[in-house]
Write a protein that binds this DNA or RNA. Structure first.
Length: 225
DNA sequence: GCGACAG
DNA sequence: ATCTTGTCGC
């Protein structure tokens, strides 16, 4: 179950941050990569609020092919507050990923891992709840800092929170703003970068792109009706 | 007190 | 997250 208030979420985050997780290594072949994306109604700005209608998509891919995808309709658990994204999206994402009949080996999520006030962002949290290795991919860091990498595909540069490297910039396309890659549940930085880089034909890794497309497509169908 | 702050 | 206009490139 997901916490529904700040106090219990923060308690859970502190607990997760201190929980050791068995390191995971991708299989040599046949890797099934999942992606999950949430979108909200168009035309709204700001942090939103509890109950906002949401479309959450999950996809599973293997060797560049979509194996399966689902979109669920649901409602946001809370307004967006930095550091408390799990209150808004956690339950929605878990439900969408559980709708997949075939469990992905690893899940990509647009959220942070250790780059978080309590070192337990939603990518880490969701992986723990699902008992599934996760990698976070965001447009920018939450709290960590570091300069951009060189303008070459695959170039990386560390993002630090104090002395600790908690994530890194990754240039998936030359001439395009880099992404932030966050090691999540049971995944280390090196593995996370390899997975995202390997899955990114465009700026955004394919499973996340497909999930985003599916969620927005479902929203547009709903808009018309 | 104020701004910054994953989505 | 979402919006906005034009613009550049394949």
């Amino acid at each position: 179950m997901w916490p529904t208030d700040e106090e219990s979420l923060v308690a859970r985050q502190r607990e997760l941050a201190a929980t050791p997780a068995e390191p995971w290594t991708p299989p040599d072949e046949g890797l099934r990569t999942g992606g999950c994306w949430v979108c909200f109604a168009r035309g709204q700005a700001g942090p939103g609020s509890a109950g906002d209608p949401a479309w959450t998509a999950s996809v599973a891919m293997r060797e560049g092919r979509v194996l399966e995808q689902h979109v669920i309709r649901g409602a946001a658990g809370a307004a967006y507050v930095p550091g408390l994204l799990a209150l808004r999206l956690g339950a929605l994402m878990e439900q969408a990923v559980r709708a997949l009949a075939g469990r992905p080996d690893v899940l990509l999520v647009d959220a942070t891992g250790r780059d978080h006030p309590h070192r337990a962002g939603l990518a880490l949290h969701l992986g723990a709840e699902l008992a599934m290795p996760t990698v976070g991919v965001t447009h920018r860091p939450l709290r960590a800092e570091g300069p951009w990498p060189a303008d070459r595909r695959g170039a990386t540069s560390p993002l630090r929170l104090g002395d600790e490297v908690v994530a890194c910039w990754l240039r998936t396309r030359p001439g395009v703003r880099p992404l932030v890659v966050h090691p999540g549940w049971r995944v280390d930085l090196h593995t996370a970068v390899a997975l995202v880089s390997g899955a990114a034909r465009r700026r955004t890794p394919e499973p996340l792109r497909r999930a985003r497309q599916a969620a927005r497509e479902a929203r547009s169908r709903a808009d018309v009706r």
